[in-house]
Design a protein around this nucleic acid. Sequence first.
DNA 1: GATGAATGAGACTTCATTCAT
DNA 2: AATGAATGAAGTCTCATTCAT
Lengths: 240, 240, 240, 240
Amino acid sequence: MTSVQPIRAARSPRRGPANRLPPERRIAEIIAAARALLAERGYENCVISDIAERAGVVEGTIYRYFENKRDLFVKVAESWFEELLGQQEDVVHVSGTEERLRRTIRRALSIIRHEPALTRFVLMELRPDPDYKNMRLYRLNRAFVSGVMEVLKEAMAKGEIEPSISLSLLRDMIFGAIEHQTWAFLREEGSFSVDETTDGITAVIFRGMRPIGTAGAASVDDMDARLERIEAALGRIEAR
Amino acid sequence: MTSVQPIRAARSPRRGPANRLPPERRIAEIIAAARALLAERGYENCVISDIAERAGVVEGTIYRYFENKRDLFVKVAESWFEELLGQQEDVVHVSGTEERLRRTIRRALSIIRHEPALTRFVLMELRPDPDYKNMRLYRLNRAFVSGVMEVLKEAMAKGEIEPSISLSLLRDMIFGAIEHQTWAFLREEGSFSVDETTDGITAVIFRGMRPIGTAGAASVDDMDARLERIEAALGRIEAR
Amino acid sequence: MTSVQPIRAARSPRRGPANRLPPERRIAEIIAAARALLAERGYENCVISDIAERAGVVEGTIYRYFENKRDLFVKVAESWFEELLGQQEDVVHVSGTEERLRRTIRRALSIIRHEPALTRFVLMELRPDPDYKNMRLYRLNRAFVSGVMEVLKEAMAKGEIEPSISLSLLRDMIFGAIEHQTWAFLREEGSFSVDETTDGITAVIFRGMRPIGTAGAASVDDMDARLERIEAALGRIEAR
Amino acid sequence: MTSVQPIRAARSPRRGPANRLPPERRIAEIIAAARALLAERGYENCVISDIAERAGVVEGTIYRYFENKRDLFVKVAESWFEELLGQQEDVVHVSGTEERLRRTIRRALSIIRHEPALTRFVLMELRPDPDYKNMRLYRLNRAFVSGVMEVLKEAMAKGEIEPSISLSLLRDMIFGAIEHQTWAFLREEGSFSVDETTDGITAVIFRGMRPIGTAGAASVDDMDARLERIEAALGRIEAR
DNA sequence: GATGAATGAGACTTCATTCAT
DNA sequence: AATGAATGAAGTCTCATTCAT
């Protein structure tokens, strides 16, 4: 997947005569092809001619619909984010800060795990771009990340977050952890359970690494911990 | 028919002077040049000829000392890690888990902040390599990261960490947060204080985001609310 | 510290016109150019850019149709052999072992004489290749050489060849002699008549260097020799 | 041995300080190193720095004693021929043309078999050179080959060779056969016995491929058949 | 005499991009 | 709208040769 790619695609005879298509379909097919290849090879190792071949067109056609290679991949990322945003409703209605955060984290985790190359492309190639902030992608990304931020803001409003903590720091700890875990996974440093990781991150974010009970009264705290585990289990069951 | 023989004209070398240097110096200069350029451009956008120019040599000279481009940058990363390891003594003698973790985090944070491109190179280009684990760099990196792991292990041994938490998850949260913060900073999304971020990460890692005093003081009201939610969830499950 | 991003300037292609050609024509032209240059310079001294120039294209175009330099020249050799095989019918119908061998030798001789660089390339660059035997060229070459081997086998079956002689040794003497003669010619060590050489090789192969009559009865043998020469002359006349 | 050679020699630390040597010894060592490497890799794949390393000197030193790479290898070939010529006495005293030729062939065969790369270098790189004939090597080579030519001339003087045969053709058949056999051997197309090959070549050269006893015993029937063919051919010619 | 760091031309190869058809 | 042949700049890497030390 992230393998280093020389590979010279076998020269393959082009299909047929013309195959005229409505622009949207053509664009969609090219984007799909590019996305698939990106997943296999990473941005730098994606060759336009291979994308074209996979999309069933020739190089020139791609340049009819996209300014250049970079533009094409920006569009790929955008279409991905749009797809994601279309699925995000469900979390809103869950009550309880912790459970909502947990669900948001789980979603992000499973997305990144399923599309690591796209994630990487956005993180590594696009985000560092000087005018990343003016790109539509930036707004889409914000819209996506804002799920987490919303929950955090709400929690803060309710007084559930220590007021001196920077929300963006929390956000970065969450996504940073997700990414690191994902990369470790991609390096095949071991398996990785979405649920366990989700619970782990949520737990640390909420209560830190301190042993439960350390900071307060034993019995109530104990009960607290047990309730928490019950809630987590229920959340998982419901999310099925 | 023409005769079989022009036989390639003998090559004629060199015009400029020579500027002889002891190998270590030359190597050091090339590594420095490569490191600087890496910081400006990232690996893929560094071209050998630019590195050579900046190092004040020609391309060929670089290949006298390094197998190929990748090898050069591996050496760059190695020399960087060696530099870092040379400064690591100070943390050992500090007592108190939290303070030691804080110092380790601060160090990592300031390093990554100052050399984000190198970090990125190691993370993105080297770590995914199939035999990254056999590289000297891997060991150097481990030596560096192990600072954090040591503190965490110690803390766990002392019972200061909830035993169900995965240490590698904690590690990833710490470094993930550091990296995210750094990149946000690089995108010029705002200033960024090493001390504040350090304290923030440390605090969250140790105590979580809950308001101080809350964690152990779960009120009866709170429990009540949560029990209610559990009942609701159970109801939903039953209703399926 | 500088920002992480210039991101390599987009490449800007092309000035000159285009001169579009159907692939077969282009391929043919490139092969022709390569063949001509190979004849002039030999493999190692052929540089892609010169071939391109002679073919009226740029270097990149060559790589559109050929994997790499070696592949190009393999194709050159193949097309040459195919050309040869297309002309090979005529020998089959001649009766008489000696005359058939003579014609086969003459053909090989004139071919090698006209394309010594190609011969050399096949002999020196391709044949030593570890998997030469799996190349199409190997089969083409066998098809060509097999002309000689067929005649020899037939002669042996008819009892015209001393059974203790290795056929492959005979083959090597024939082709070895042809090549040596050709190279001597190429070194401009004198002219060289295809007919004379053919007759010489044939004669030695059939009867050895011993003076005619040495081994047997004088008169009959003498007559034999004279008949032989008459036959050879007739063969040449017919072959015109 | 004749393998295609990329191989990047491991950078190895130079031995010691200076190691001053009398010129002849130095030259001899460099030539020996070059010869060994030539045998392993072939001319084009011999790199000066590798030769230097093997000779225990640095590149620059080689250029003190040799004009350039080609010159070095010419000297290598020369020294080889000189070595050969120094061993050539033994054949002279043998009586009997056939036996002397056989011995000469065996010697040549075993030489070429043991130093195919050198043979190839002389044949392929040097002999085609426009002024090969002015090189000392040319004279040395002639001196070597003349062994065969002497025997042949003598045999011709004694009337043991059919006078119409060109001596240079005989020479070429002998050496051509030797070379072809050697190359087939190098391609690992089978084992190869110096003695058998020697005997085979000698036999064919002396008596041809005809079954023993046949050459001089052309039957009346045979003559009859041939006369018939001649008549037929004349008929065809007339019919044109 | 020896060193070996440095040169620099040039080889092969890749690929984003263009535009005549 | 689509094609795909062609471009050409740029990249990585090699190596014979030089010359300051």
